[in-house]
């Protein structure tokens, strides 16, 4: 695993969590649990960046752009860094439909190199472009950001483009080329397939194909970093899960990307296990983890870590690993 990848993560006073930690993190991490247990909030906390403004911009972009928390000047959303003292180290106010206060407390991360990272007090280097945010929301289909990814990360290198199209064959075996069209006012992505004469807009492709394209592009632009994917299974047909997993995991391995992915789907978990049993994938087993998030009787949320063997055993025996109240 890349030495910058996380092996431990703890967040305090973040959204619904007083304190939440994840131990023994691997490179390929599934996060499962009941509705409203806070899986997506964990992904949001993992947007953490030592540069405070990067983190707040990432977080706010996810909340406003992806999760559609509406603006309302009467009821601001508030972000603090530190433990919400009278004079917080950092404070930002945004506008929200309903009164909601987000308090960012202490965040401690431990990387594979053993280095501890803490929030810096300085604020600089704003990173506003949403295509730079290492996050794949579950509902986002075709959007203009894909053009940016494609032009910046893929089409500049023949080899990268070749690898990208090869990877897409997992879901679209007949795909031949992807290109940008400038024929209309707004550039669009087109795909050509060996079995079709017309070259069609990518936006007409199925949700699963667009999802895979988005994930692959995000992996390519986040080399050596971490990527958070909400509801990784959304839009993928169960018969394509194996091909989907093989493609995503190999691309992440090749590009040293650490993945954090939420899901509710048992078939998605089963195929994750089965793909990792394949001869060429066995090496990846040691980096696979499943985190089961559970709300305890006292209202706190705890995660239980399963390595590949424990996870695979539970799946094979039909024991529940997807959380839920008793």
């Amino acid at each position: 695993m890349h030495e910058k990848h996380l092996t431990y993560f703890k967040v305090e006073n973040f959204k619904r969590f007083d304190s939440f930690e994840m131990n023994d993190i691997g490179q390929f991490n599934l996060i499962v649990g009941d509705n409203n247990v806070g899986k997506t909030s964990v992904l949001e906390a993992l947007l953490f960046d030592k540069e405070t403004m990067n983190f707040t911009h990432r977080l706010l972009t996810v909340l406003f752009e992806f999760r559609k928390v509406a603006n309302n000047t009467q009821n601001p959303i508030k972000l603090f860094l530190g433990s919400k003292p009278e004079n917080p180290k950092f404070f930002i106010s945004y506008h929200n439909k309903e009164t909601e206060e987000i308090v960012l407390g202490k965040i401690v991360l431990r990387t594979a190199s053993g280095e501890n990272e803490r929030i810096a007090e300085e604020t600089y280097n704003t990173e506003t472009a949403k295509e730079k945010i290492p996050y794949v929301p579950f509902h986002l289909g075709y959007d203009q950001d894909l053009i940016t990814y494609y032009s910046k990360a893929i089409q500049k290198s023949r080899q990268v483009k070749k690898d990208f199209i090869f990877a897409l064959k997992a879901l679209v075996p007949t795909i031949e080329n992807v290109e940008i069209s400038l024929d209309s006012d707004t550039p669009i992505l087109l795909i050509s397939q060996t079995d079709k004469d017309e070259i069609l807009p990518l936006s007409l492709s199925g949700e699963g194909t667009i999802k895979l394209i988005r994930i692959l592009m995000k992996i390519l632009v986040n080399q050596g970093k971490r990527l958070m994917i909400d509801e990784v299974d959304a839009g993928v047909h169960y018969k394509k899960f194996k091909d989907f997993w093989r493609t995503v995991l190999l691309a992440a391995k090749e590009n040293d990307v650490q993945l954090f992915m939420t899901t509710h789907n048992i078939e998605c978990l089963q195929y994750f296990k089965e793909v990792l049993e394949e001869t060429e994938m066995i090496d990846l087993q040691k980096e696979a983890r499943c985190f089961e998030m559970v709300e305890l009787p006292n209202g706190s949320v705890k995660s239980y870590t399963r390595g590949y063997e424990e996870f695979a055993n539970a799946i094979d025996l039909g024991n529940n690993i997807r959380g839920g109240k008793l």
Binding site: E292, V294, L296, P297, Y304, T305, N313, A314, N319
Partner: peptide
């Protein structure tokens, strides 16, 4: 297999009362 395969279940069960 109690510890090697099922440690998470023991912990979760105890934490759940």
């Amino acid at each position: 297999n109690e510890k090697s395969q099922n440690k998470a279940y023991f912990e979760k069960s105890t934490d759940s009362g």
